[in-house]
Design a protein around this nucleic acid. Sequence first.
DNA 1: GTTATTCATCGTATATTTGCGATGGACTAA
DNA 2: TTAGTCCATCGCAAATATACGATGAATAAC
Lengths: 111, 111
Amino acid sequence: MQRTLSVIEYSVDEEVMASIAKALSHPVRLKILKLLATHECCFTGELTELIPMAQSTISQHLKALLGAGLIQGEIYPPKVRYCINPEQWLKASVLFEKYFNADKDFLCDCG
Amino acid sequence: MQRTLSVIEYSVDEEVMASIAKALSHPVRLKILKLLATHECCFTGELTELIPMAQSTISQHLKALLGAGLIQGEIYPPKVRYCINPEQWLKASVLFEKYFNADKDFLCDCG
DNA sequence: GTTATTCATCGTATATTTGCGATGGACTAA
DNA sequence: TTAGTCCATCGCAAATATACGATGAATAAC
């Protein structure tokens, strides 16, 4: 794809928040995160039972969540247990909260 | 693309939150939203001056934000003024806040 | 060793996203 | 009418995302 010639500068927060938002941008990933956060299940195998998708697809979504740092995996051979990454979860919470609550006055008088 | 055969059920909140997250998943859209939220600018033309991207690209991103309901446009011929949509902004804020704060105990003992 | 289980990764197909320049519609101003 | 401004949309190209089945690595159980 053609990329912008002049490089656009983003803040670290913008980059991080965008990457977390991307991880949250698919409903099945929201569902997976919720299942892990509520301890309804922990293992990939349990997820594949609860979610009617191919195991490879679930694994792919887990990889995306790992990439955003929102979850972490621990090997319990031959299983893998996934859990919420509390630090990144908190970071996400704070980032979004700040972003939405920093500005409250939306009355526009520039017209 | 091949779609899942058995349809997956998502809650309304999951669908809405995912669509908002998708709108937030690109740093330039976070930047645009922030510029609008802080009243640093309101018109497409101002955005194209502040952001080194083609006007058509900016317009496309604005369309994505419109689609998620996060902004609204008003025509001031020949300009268009964009503003934050306060209702959807609040809804987004609440959705993310609830999602992140509903579950706090991440200690996993299912291993 | 052999077999079974679990899950990541590969390969593939299709859909969507992201960027650009070009074009055209809508309106204003002259 | 003509010219100019502003911006949405089109058409294209490339990158990324999303789904699947097949395969293979790692380990446990026998």
